[in-house]
Amino acid sequence: MGSEKGLSKFLKSKMLSLLIILLILVVIFSVWSALIGKKFLNTDTLLSIIDMLVVTSFLAIGSGALLLTGNIDLSTTTIGATGGLLLVVSMKTWLLPWPVALILTLAVCAAFGVINAVLVNEFNFQPFIATMATSSVFKGFQMFISWDKASQAAQNFSYSSPFTDFLGTYEVFGFIPITVVLMIIAFLFYGILLSKTKFGDTVYLVGGNPNAARLSGLNPKKISYILFANSAVMSGLAGVVLMARTGQANQLALSNNMFTGLVAAMLGGISFYGGNGGMGGVFVGLLILNTFNKGMAIVNFDAYWSSVLTGVVLVIALSLDFTKTKRLHKLPARLKDAEKQHAAAGGSR
């Protein structure tokens, strides 16, 4: 009786295999880069990996938490770009003080998330199609706020202000970027929220079986609304951070990261079918993705391949997740139902 503790639990966990993959990647790239006369393991690489990590981490936290309940948001990057633009527009054009601008930005993002949740919960849309459709609407909004009448096109903004400069460049103790601190805080906050609080327990239970959770007095709908809104707010934050770090805001921001959050979450062990995995996994998953990308860059791998690799990793992560889930659970009824629905419902969800 009692629960498994400490080392033995860790040895059996997914985390260990993730860390081993990470280690293998590091070794491969160290050897590979040494062969072509470059150095992989140094502070520069590390800092640059962390640098790339920051923006995507916000996306991954939002997507990961949402994926825990088996839902998916494809509008995150659009919302993120909107977040960056809205902040700049509200400070530069509307001359709002930064706290007001920031709150306005995040509130609009949250509203977008709620719209997604309404379509999914009240109209029974499949999350994919709902968020794909809304991302077009959000894109319209994004273009609207950044519209330049003279050129009849959406503008690219270059912007700097004490607030965004501080967010983008300030370094704690002179060497840790403030955004990294924010990222760590975010991971710790969500990690603790999900693993230590009632809210977290509820998310996992709802993700495991919404019917049973409801009949045990939990409220799956409420959780869905909160997580869709949260995913949107986190995407908005990612956009704001990216804006602050680059000093730029435009429509294309984050456009390469449409699936980064999703893939990191799945790599980190959150199942496509909900109910399993955690923030630690997401972090390491993200670390693996970024190490991989950085490694590829260092060994001079063609940057144009990134889109191909994204697709490959997405499909592999999905296949692995599917076979794993199938093996572990021998496809219990819930999954079979989900499949039936796929089959019936345009073979998607």
């Binding site: 499949q126 199609i129 697709g311 997405l314 499909v315 796929h342 998607s348 969800r349």
Partner: peptide
Amino acid sequence: LVPFIVTIG
């Protein structure tokens, strides 16, 4: 795998 996600990939 389901068509939606496969074809995105």
